[in-house]
Design a protein around this nucleic acid. Structure first.
Length: 297
DNA sequence: CGCCAGGGGAGCT
DNA sequence: AGCTCCCCTGGC
């Protein structure tokens, strides 16, 4: 187990930020030493069950990896070994980046952006798997977050590899492009993807055949990467920007969806000051998105 | 039952 | 850049 004291990091906010769809809160029974943990899976959509001592436990599945992590205030516990944490999760959660520095650069006269950042100051822009993000945001279009989660859960259970951690926790890895490429275009209908199924299958074929080289795209700067992603069937402006932001960590990507669009029209009639925030607009976009989704406005 | 919205995209002008 | 159509699912 890795224990950490961290500011500007909140598992709950990250889970609700809409950038990852396979992270969820679970019920965790905490013990002071953290020596052994017994966790009860209460399924999706459970109520506001209070965990002991104010700790919140989350399950994170990233591509083929699994992690449980708990947090209370700025105290975090990652249930993995030091090596795995250093090599993977620390990077995944973008813990080496200074988010206070981003927030400090917000125009003090911009009360709206200050409030948005304050509401989601524990958000990190995760460094997620490229293939998983391509599929996830193909599915996200004209779709709500609850259903996106269910769709992705469905294809993972059906086409992903069943795995088990040393602790005996079962999970499914994200399905490989080769697997999805072999499916009929309508096969994903039963995973509840609707018309998006053909986007996923055709894109999977493009990746599996080598026509699209994700490893190559990973090395490209933002503009070039986005240009390449736009060639994929079903990928438009917004989806491409989401992939760039959440997989390639291009913080200048600024995905504009209906929520963001409404917020921009309401609060930035003369346009969002992208120049002022050059290079990290994507972080601010995420604060705004989170604020719009959870402030109840 | 109809209607509409859900973190859009394709195809055309 | 703007417009029309696309045409799945869930909620009201």
């Amino acid at each position: 187990m890795v224990v950490l004291q961290t500011d500007y990091f909140d598992l709950g906010q990250i889970c609700r930020s809409g950038q990852c769809f396979r992270m969820r809160r679970i019920e965790g029974e905490h013990e002071g030493t953290g020596a052994e943990k017994i966790c009860l899976d209460v399924g999706a959509g459970h109520g506001d069950s209070k965990t002991s001592l104010g700790w919140e436990t989350y399950e994170i599945i990233a591509d083929q990896k699994y992690l449980r992590a708990s947090q209370r205030g700025r105290e975090c516990r990652f249930f993995c070994c030091q090596e795995e944490f250093e090599d993977f999760w620390k990077v995944y959660f973008d813990l080496e980046n200074d988010y206070k520095a981003y927030i400090d650069q917000i125009n003090p006269r911009d009360a709206y952006l200050l409030a948005a950042a304050d509401s989601g100051s524990g958000i990190r822009i995760l460094r997620q798997d490229l293939w998983e993000m391509v599929v996830s945001f193909l599915i996200s279009q004209q779709n709500n977050i609850v259903r996106i989660r269910r769709c992705i859960g469905n294809i993972c259970e059906r086409y992903g590899e069943r795995k088990e951690t040393p602790e005996g926790w079962e999970y499914y890895g994200f399905p490989k492009a080769e697997t999805l490429a072999g499916l009929d275009e309508v096969a994903l209908m039963e995973c509840n993807l609707g018309y998006r199924g053909k986007y996923v299958v055709r894109t999977a074929r493009s990746v599996a055949s080598g026509e699209t080289d994700l490893e190559q795209i990973r090395k490209l700067p933002y503009r070039k990467a986005k240009e390449e992603l736009l060639k994929l069937f079903g990928v438009g402006e917004k989806v491409a920007d989401c992939i760039c932001l959440f997989a390639l960590h291009d913080l200048e990507a600024f995905p504009v969806d209906t929520h963001i669009n409404q917020a921009l029209e309401a609060h930035y009639k003369r346009g969002f000051p992208k120049r002022r925030y050059r290079g990290f607009q994507g972080v601010l976009q995420q604060y705004i998105f989170y604020y719009e989704l959870h402030s109840g406005s």
